[in-house]
Simulated assay, not measured.
Amino acid sequence: MKILQALFFPPEQPGGVSSMVPYIQERFNDMDVEMELFSLPKRIRNKGSEEITFHTFDHTPYIGNKLVDKYIQTYRDYLWWTKMRINKSYDIIHAHHPIAAMVMKRVFPNTKLILTLHSSYERELTLNKAIKVGSIEHQFLTKIYRELEATADRILTVSNAFKSYLAEYVEDVSRIKVIHNGFDEKRFRPIAHENEVTQLISVCRLVPAKGLDVLLKACARIKAKGHPFVLHLIGDGPIREDLEKMAQDLGLYDDIIFYGYMLHPEEFMPFFDVFVLPSRAEAFGSVFAEAALCQLALVGTNVGGIAEQIEHGVNGLLVPVEDDKALADALETVIIDPDYRYQLARTASDKAKRDYSLERVIAQLKKVYREEL
């Protein structure tokens, strides 16, 4: 069996699917399944020029919009790169991005195409205040889901919450199967340590959708109560300067460390105590499972895939979106009670090993691949 995993971002991209799929490839290759990876290099820009058409809607009324034009050009570039680089056939192509899926079906119309939808571009843009619901950009991006439904032979997604979100934009949501992301326990594992002051960590792109402004307000509340802590923020993004200024304004400058971009944060994540991320939306939230495998206590918002991973009070704490007081109360609970924190972390680790192991994903994918042959 020959399988192509078609990514958008290169495999060395940190976090999420781009960092997970190479480990899937490694496991399948060990089983004598020929699996290759393909992606669009960042340097490929404005190379493609082929005419783009969609089968389920007319995209021409959207032409002239900056975001739509960029999306179409990226489609052309991926198509150009695919035709130039791939000169062999496969039994199955598994795409992990809408553009990759549409291109692969166009180039290989007779090859079985499986698509995993990992996140929602339009929802991310909306939460980051880049577009508005109902705008030209939002209309175009949500129409892509119906196109994908007509294009792919099989559609997978990463959480029941995201499957429910997609129901508004596809004709038959029952076709979509949920396979949660899986993680290699060799990469994410606990390390015995003891911190005199509670160490909080958050790993994400610094964008409004991640709710880090809410986290800083919560930290200000905790500090006002006299609870010592250090918050480690790993990641970079367009609002970093705003967050740094906010930290100064809230008197948190000495309590927060901004690391910026880091290629392998999992290498020292196990040395912290609490993982916290008050996202405004998450299709799955892979970093929670990663932190759980490192045996950190989890604190997150009651949204999307986060709520599917955390059972409040059992393997972590959930708080409402945008509620800095509730977030501060949750963080205070795990800061002042190390035994409870440890209990949550152990339970979270056990669940992650059981539900999000890479072996489980391999078994589920193997079954899907065989069904499509």
Rank of each mutant, 00 (worst) to 15 (best):
residue 3 I to F: 01
residue 4 L to R: 03
residue 4 L to K: 08
residue 7 L to M: 05
residue 9 F to A: 09
residue 10 P to E: 15
residue 13 Q to W: 10
residue 17 V to E: 03
residue 24 I to P: 03
residue 24 I to W: 06
residue 26 E to C: 00
residue 26 E to Y: 04
residue 28 F to D: 04
residue 29 N to S: 10
residue 30 D to Q: 15
residue 32 D to T: 05
residue 35 M to S: 12
residue 36 E to I: 00
residue 37 L to V: 05
residue 37 L to S: 04
residue 41 P to F: 13
residue 53 T to A: 11
residue 54 F to W: 08
residue 57 F to E: 10
residue 60 T to I: 10
residue 62 Y to G: 07
residue 63 I to Q: 12
residue 63 I to T: 10
residue 66 K to F: 09
residue 70 K to Q: 14
residue 71 Y to W: 15
residue 72 I to L: 15
residue 72 I to E: 09
residue 74 T to C: 12
residue 74 T to R: 15
residue 74 T to P: 01
residue 75 Y to P: 07
residue 79 L to D: 04
residue 79 L to T: 02
residue 84 M to A: 13
residue 85 R to S: 13
residue 90 Y to N: 00
residue 91 D to I: 03
residue 94 H to Y: 01
residue 98 P to N: 09
residue 101 A to V: 03
residue 103 V to F: 00
residue 105 K to V: 08
residue 106 R to W: 05
residue 108 F to R: 05
residue 111 T to K: 08
residue 115 L to I: 05
residue 117 L to M: 14
residue 118 H to V: 12
residue 119 S to K: 03
residue 129 K to A: 11
residue 133 V to A: 11
residue 135 S to I: 04
residue 139 Q to H: 11
residue 142 T to V: 03
residue 145 Y to I: 08
residue 150 A to D: 14
residue 150 A to S: 15
residue 153 D to P: 10
residue 161 A to L: 06
residue 167 A to T: 12
residue 171 E to I: 03
residue 172 D to P: 02
residue 175 R to Q: 13
residue 177 K to M: 08
residue 185 E to H: 14
residue 188 F to H: 09
residue 191 I to K: 15
residue 196 E to L: 12
residue 196 E to K: 15
residue 196 E to S: 13
residue 200 L to C: 00
residue 202 S to Y: 00
residue 204 C to R: 00
residue 208 P to M: 04
residue 208 P to I: 03
residue 212 L to I: 10
residue 213 D to I: 01
residue 214 V to S: 06
residue 223 K to R: 15
residue 224 A to N: 11
residue 227 H to Q: 07
residue 228 P to W: 08
residue 228 P to E: 08
residue 230 V to A: 01
residue 234 I to W: 09
residue 237 G to F: 06
residue 239 I to Q: 13
residue 242 D to L: 12
residue 243 L to M: 11
residue 243 L to H: 05
residue 246 M to Q: 15
residue 248 Q to C: 09
residue 249 D to A: 12
residue 250 L to E: 08
residue 252 L to V: 04
residue 254 D to Q: 13
residue 257 I to V: 14
residue 259 Y to K: 01
residue 260 G to F: 07
residue 261 Y to M: 11
residue 261 Y to T: 04
residue 262 M to W: 00
residue 268 F to N: 11
residue 268 F to I: 10
residue 269 M to L: 14
residue 273 D to F: 00
residue 275 F to M: 08
residue 280 R to N: 02
residue 281 A to H: 10
residue 282 E to P: 01
residue 282 E to V: 01
residue 284 F to N: 05
residue 286 S to W: 05
residue 293 L to H: 09
residue 295 Q to L: 05
residue 296 L to T: 05
residue 296 L to D: 02
residue 298 L to N: 00
residue 301 T to H: 03
residue 304 G to T: 01
residue 305 G to N: 09
residue 305 G to Q: 10
residue 308 E to K: 09
residue 308 E to G: 05
residue 309 Q to W: 00
residue 310 I to R: 09
residue 312 H to I: 07
residue 312 H to K: 10
residue 314 V to W: 04
residue 317 L to M: 10
residue 318 L to K: 05
residue 320 P to E: 12
residue 321 V to Y: 02
residue 322 E to M: 11
residue 326 A to P: 10
residue 333 T to Y: 00
residue 341 R to Y: 11
residue 344 L to K: 01
residue 346 R to M: 14
residue 346 R to E: 15
residue 348 A to T: 12
residue 353 K to S: 11
residue 357 S to I: 06
residue 360 R to I: 15
residue 361 V to A: 11
residue 362 I to K: 08
residue 365 L to I: 12
residue 367 K to W: 12
residue 367 K to S: 13
residue 368 V to L: 03
residue 369 Y to I: 06
